[in-house]
């Protein structure tokens, strides 16, 4: 210990008076590796007391569709970041193997699977929205999608809702 003087009491600034910060994430991908970035960043935003919205659109609908949300996949096909010879990546079984490896890595870090993660975010106060056009395009009903969903919005309503938000498209 180098300092010996007694300083006046320091209280962390938790920013309780800061109001109005918002973040919005647009999830447009339905692969396992592209589902997590928004979930993890949304969790960080909510921990910081930031009002957070996630809008699921196009293939991102797979993240909230009860039929697919438990079974998102990760494929090494065309993904040079796997550092595999690209000619091998389309071989039968490769996607299954890569998916199960990624799931195991996530589990080891105690990161929940996608449905449990979304429930956790919803418990933290995250707003979850489905894109109206995608709902129509994939012929989905409200009951086809996870119960925690706040609702179905057209893009114009979503844009209005997130006025002033920092927005990320994934």
């Amino acid at each position: 210990m180098t300092t010996t003087e007694t300083a006046p009491m320091v209280v962390p600034d938790f920013g309780d008076e800061d109001e109005g910060r918002k973040m919005a994430f647009v999830c447009s991908k339905g692969t396992l590796d592209m589902a997590y970035p928004a979930l993890i960043m949304a969790s960080g935003a909510l921990e910081q007391g930031v009002e957070t919205h996630i809008f699921f659109t196009f293939w991102g609908m797979d993240m909230i569709n009860k039929k697919t949300m438990d079974d998102l996949k990760f494929t090494p096909v065309g993904n040079t970041a796997t550092h595999m010879p690209m000619a091998l990546t389309p071989l039968p079984g490769m996607t299954a193997m890569a998916t199960s490896r990624m799931r195991k890595q996530l589990q080891e870090l105690d990161i929940p699977d996608v449905p449990a993660f979304l429930t956790h975010l919803s418990d933290m106060g995250c707003h979850l929205w489905a894109c109206k056009m995608s709902v129509d395009m994939f012929d989905l009903e409200r009951d086809d999608m996870m119960d925690e969903l706040d609702g179905i919005l057209n893009v114009s309503d979503f844009i209005e809702l997130i006025e002033g938000a920092q927005t990320m498209f994934i």
Binding site: A7, M9, V10
Partner: peptide
């Protein structure tokens, strides 16, 4: 590392 007094404790 500062010290501070809270509830009469250093």
């Amino acid at each position: 590392m500062p010290t501070t007094a809270i509830a009469d404790k250093e």
